[in-house]
Design a protein around this nucleic acid. Structure first.
Lengths: 222, 222
DNA sequence: TTCAACAATATTGTATACATTAAAGACCGA
DNA sequence: TCGGTCTTTAATGTATACAATATTGTTGAA
């Protein structure tokens, strides 16, 4: 992606993640041009990219709309992710380097340090470290197909929404999973790593669905 | 996709599938404009779409290049496909309608009729029916996430290349798998359907890799 | 002869004007 | 008042001109 396109992509994406552009909203190219300060061509390029990243959907001759996820969609995504990330963990166990294992350990420790501080919960820090953790595992599999699939499946907005509702204890549980995964990888135990990863993702799913149905109920009552 | 974009997409895609645009080749927008008879804008849109469909890769300020698949990439794809299509079969067993099961049966019979005729092998017909078979199963799962993932993974050029090297006996084996899958779905036996599907995909993988390494060896000898 | 710097060229990136299409509203008739 | 058709308008789709960038080739000196 080139400069102008990237600028448009980031700005539009942020507005979607922050909720300024609500699910289902019609994103008009003209308005986006005003927002981003670039011409329609890079705006259109950005929208195409956002479509492949599933932030928006395109309807011919009608434009692009912010993607709307149903409960079933979200459950599907988590279920698939559990399977794919398990594969990642399993394959990583056979291919991962010593250096990569150490990197994973450092990420676990960094999050743990934050949790031990008893200061404010830095969710953005957690999200970043968590993302890097999974990225290193993915890299260790050396599988383009897995990387492509997961990049398609993993929905940053959903992960962010999940993490922001984590309590300190839940963040601790999540990081404990990370610790167990690192241990399994050190022992080159792919099956164990896969099992822990599966639990890791399914825990996130349960947390997300609990808070999701709760918020839906609140909205309905309003 | 709109008219001009679709025209460009189809033409470029055909040239890639036929080998006119070889793997690694640099596709220049100017030449594609001449080829397709549309302006650069829809050509660029088509290229972006071809990039999301993994036919080409884009390098910033350098343009797009026909994607090159390594043996490892292809093995990864088949392995992932085996897992995802198994999921599809399993989930389809619980959600599929009577009508859809009958449709699947008809597809099996149509291919069988062709095989029984002892006439020429109509590979294009087989490919089309096969594609529909898998599409119906996917539809029956009612899972957007699965559909998205598989559309990302399934590489039409690889499937076509595999099928074109199938002997009559191998086509028969493939269609026997279809028959077994239909039977499993009729019995609403998701586990069985998943197992057969896994064998179905892995058989394709073995066939592809055999002919692939053979052709590689031929090229090396030339 | 080789390497580096520079110039020329070709290609991609961006902006914008024009064409086409779909949605919204006004008008007319029943 | 309702329904439908036509007009209007606003959006997307397309073409093309211009700008920025990367590649290639050339020239010069070491």
């Amino acid at each position: 992606m080139s400069k102008a396109t990237e600028k448009a992509y980031s700005l539009i994406r942020e507005n979607i993640l922050s909720g300024t552009f609500a699910p289902g909203a019609h994103l008009k190219e003209g308005e986006l041009v005003d927002l981003c300060g670039v011409s329609r061509t890079p705006v259109r390029d950005a929208l195409r990219q956002l479509a492949t990243d599933r932030y928006v959907v395109t309807r011919r001759n009608q434009g692009v709309f912010v993607n709307e996820w149903t409960v079933d969609d979200i459950n599907d995504i988590f279920e698939l992710r559990a399977i794919l990330e398990s594969m990642v963990a399993e394959r990583a166990a056979t291919h991962i380097s010593e250096g990569q294992v150490q990197e994973l350990g450092k990420i676990h420790q960094a999050i743990q340090a934050m949790l031990d501080e008893n200061g404010p919960l830095l969710v953005d820090f957690f999200l970043e470290q968590n993302k890097r953790f999974h990225a290193i595992l993915l890299e260790a599999t050396r599988s383009r197909a897995l990387a492509d699939s997961l990049s398609q499946i993993v929905q940053p907005p959903l992960i962010a929404q999940t993490a922001r509702q984590y309590s300190r204890q839940e963040l601790q549980n999540s990081n404990d999973h990370h610790r167990d995964i690192v241990a399994a990888l050190e022992a080159r135990d792919g099956a164990l790593a896969a099992s822990v990863m599966k639990i890791h993702i399914i825990s996130a799913q349960r947390k997300f669905m609990n808070s999701y149905v709760a918020s839906e109920a609140t909205e309905a009552a309003e």
